[in-house]
């Protein structure tokens, strides 16, 4: 398989890598860059565990070719707060929105993206936005609550 050179920014850092042209972004992140916060749980776009932000928009890294992110900006869960915790992370910890934690990176990135698009989402809007992310542990309620609380705080901040 041919390899191609790609240059992209991950969590603010410029990276240059040689990747196979059929290589998936999830594998490059997890295996080449050791960014294992991005999780594999289905590989077919059904669970959302592998969500990352591409130019600030959520994508499923298990369905994204690494060569397609050439020249682009990627944010993974490791990159959302420089120091300490981001408000969404804090809210997840406070509201027990985390059990086993395997869906959490994807959920938090989706929540971040939602709050950027819509700083004050209703409960239904949150549910709708997160519906592609499977969580087998929490029953979602505390995740939704955590996001809702951020939404309100977010507004107060402004």
């Amino acid at each position: 398989m041919k390899k191609a050179e790609i240059e992209f920014t991950v969590n603010g850092k410029k990276r240059t890598l040689f990747v196979k042209t059929n290589e998936l972004l999830i594998n490059v992140l997890r295996n080449d860059l050791n960014l294992t916060g991005t999780k594999y749980a289905c590989g077919i776009g059904e669970c959302g565990a592998c969500t990352v932000l591409l130019e600030g928009r959520p994508v499923l890294s298990c369905l994204t070719l690494a060569v397609d992110v050439n020249g682009k900006n990627i944010t993974t869960i490791e990159g959302i707060s420089k120091d300490g915790f981001d408000p969404v992370q804090k809210s997840f910890l406070k509201n027990a929105a985390v059990q086993c934690g395997f869906c959490t990176p994807g959920m938090i990135l989706m929540a971040k993206s939602l709050l950027k698009e819509n700083p004050n989402p209703t409960e239904d809007e949150i549910r709708d936005y997160l519906r592609g992310n499977i969580c087998r542990c929490t029953g979602y309620t505390q995740i939704i609550k955590a996001v809702k609380e951020c939404a309100n705080n977010h507004n107060q901040d402004k």
Binding site: T36, I77, E78, L93
Partner: peptide
């Protein structure tokens, strides 16, 4: 209290597959 296992929200928690 907040959950102790904070690595779960930062992507730093290591699972067997990691």
């Amino acid at each position: 209290f907040d959950i102790k296992n904070v690595g779960k929200v930062t992507g730093k928690e290591i699972y067997a597959s990691d």
